[in-house]
Computed example of a mutant assay.
Amino acid sequence: METAQPTVVTTEGLEALLDTLRRRGYRVVGPTVRDQAIIYDDIASIADLPRGWTDAQEGGRYRLARRDDDALFGYAVGPHSWKKFLHPPVLRLWHAERDAAGVRVVPEPDPDERFAFIGVRACELHAIAIQDKVFLESGQIDPHYRARREGAFIVAVNCAVAGGTCFCVSMNTGPKAEAGFDLALTEMLREGEHHFLVEAGTDAGNAILAELPHRLATTEDLAAAAAVVARTAGSMGREMRSDDVHELLLRNLDHSRWDEVAARCLTCGNCTMVCPTCFCTSVEESSDLAGAEVSRSRRWDSCFTMDFSYIHGGSVRSSARARYRQWMTHKLATWFDQFGTSGCVGCGRCITWCPVGIDITEEVRAIRESEPQ
């Protein structure tokens, strides 16, 4: 791709972007306010974006709050991740019908829609890249994921706000989008003006950008956008030393801290449901009462459930201690052994949406500080 000079668009240019994507046949999905949270869903215009809203997050706590400006992306992340669309919570794989002629098995067709994701954060770009490794690059290709992933158009947003549970700087995954996007926006509100610095990451992004009303970015624009990212990087809500966490956890599998966290953990699985990289599933079959139709579906599962590790004779991980240790050591350590990368992107969702506020960064710190110096 030929590198293009960054440009600047107004809110009218952003509206034109959504219109252009829709005109090209994309299903446009982005952040919107619903049920007292910022979630991802279909959006028709920038009026659907969370204008003037932010989120206050801490361990076990999430609240929306009003900003003192009209920022469209002035929040961190909500309970949803883009995994919801690329790796759906429930997916019917096939169904079979029985009639007088016999049994007919009908595979589930691939989706015929192309997604355009609006407002993807840097940590989420890394999460999508991690799921690409799992579903596309690990030797076994998941055709259902591939059908949704191919052709997706990604509009990233560089973070102007760090949530109270964010630690992407520690994981080298943000707050600036560096790769994996077609277009990247930095929202700038200054002196009554509402502008977005736009950087293209692909030829497809350049082609879309050429159709939008824009102007070339000035030195002042570039400096203002850089200041937004620098301010966010300096205000992380959490931190976690991650360069040695693989070895740290694997040499502490019998640490007493696992018992302490198990005493608090409800094994509800919230952390795995909101995590943008967790990918565990189970397969279910169901039939109608007449026995004329049966279907097989795949749905999200969690290593926190008793049934997930069940084999003949019982569950391999029957205690809360074993299940929490499995999740945390896989996420931060053995994921490297499987996929060559961490399974954590520092988004902080597992901390925010844990009902009892268990903090993965605090658990790592406690184990590290217990070792002899």
Rank of each mutant, 00 (worst) to 15 (best):
Phe135Ile: 06
Leu136Cys: 07
Glu137Cys: 12
Glu137Gln: 15
Glu137Thr: 13
Gly139Ser: 13
Gln140Ser: 05
Gln140Asn: 04
Ile141Gly: 05
Ile141Ser: 06
Asp142His: 06
Asp142Ser: 09
Asp142Gln: 07
Asp142Ala: 08
His144Glu: 05
His144Phe: 08
His144Tyr: 06
Tyr145Lys: 06
Tyr145Thr: 08
Arg146Val: 10
Arg146Ile: 09
Ala147Val: 11
Arg148Asp: 10
Arg148Ser: 14
Arg149Ser: 11
Arg149Asp: 12
Glu150Trp: 08
Glu150Tyr: 07
Ala152Ile: 07
Ala152Gln: 06
Ala152Trp: 01
Phe153Ile: 05
Ile154Thr: 07
Val155Tyr: 01
Ala156Arg: 00
Ala156Gly: 12
Val157Thr: 10
Cys159Ile: 09
Ala160Phe: 03
Ala160Gly: 13
Ala160Pro: 02
Ala162Lys: 00
Ala162Glu: 00
Gly164Thr: 03
Gly164Ile: 02
Gly164Lys: 01
Thr165Trp: 01
Thr165Tyr: 01
Thr165His: 04
Cys166Ser: 13
Cys166Leu: 11
Cys166Val: 09
Phe167Asp: 00
Val169Phe: 02
Val169Glu: 05
Ser170Glu: 08
Met171Ser: 13
Met171Phe: 11
Met171His: 13
Met171Asp: 08
Asn172Ala: 14
Asn172His: 09
Thr173Ile: 03
Thr173Asn: 03
Gly174Asp: 02
Gly174Pro: 04
Gly174Met: 05
Gly174Ser: 07
Pro175Arg: 03
Pro175Met: 14
Pro175Asn: 11
Lys176Glu: 14
Lys176Gly: 04
Ala177Gly: 13
Ala177Ile: 12
Glu178Tyr: 09
Gly180Asp: 07
Gly180Val: 09
Phe181Lys: 15
Asp182Ala: 12
Leu183Lys: 04
Leu183Ile: 10
Leu183Glu: 01
Ala184His: 02
Ala184Lys: 00
Leu185Trp: 02
Leu185Tyr: 03
Leu185Pro: 00
Leu189His: 09
Leu189Asn: 10
Leu189Val: 14
Leu189Pro: 01
Leu189Thr: 11
Arg190Leu: 10
Arg190Asn: 05
Arg190Tyr: 06
Glu191Thr: 10
Glu191Val: 06
Glu193Ile: 02
Glu193Leu: 10
Glu193Asp: 14
His194Gln: 13
His195Lys: 12
His195Cys: 06
His195Thr: 11
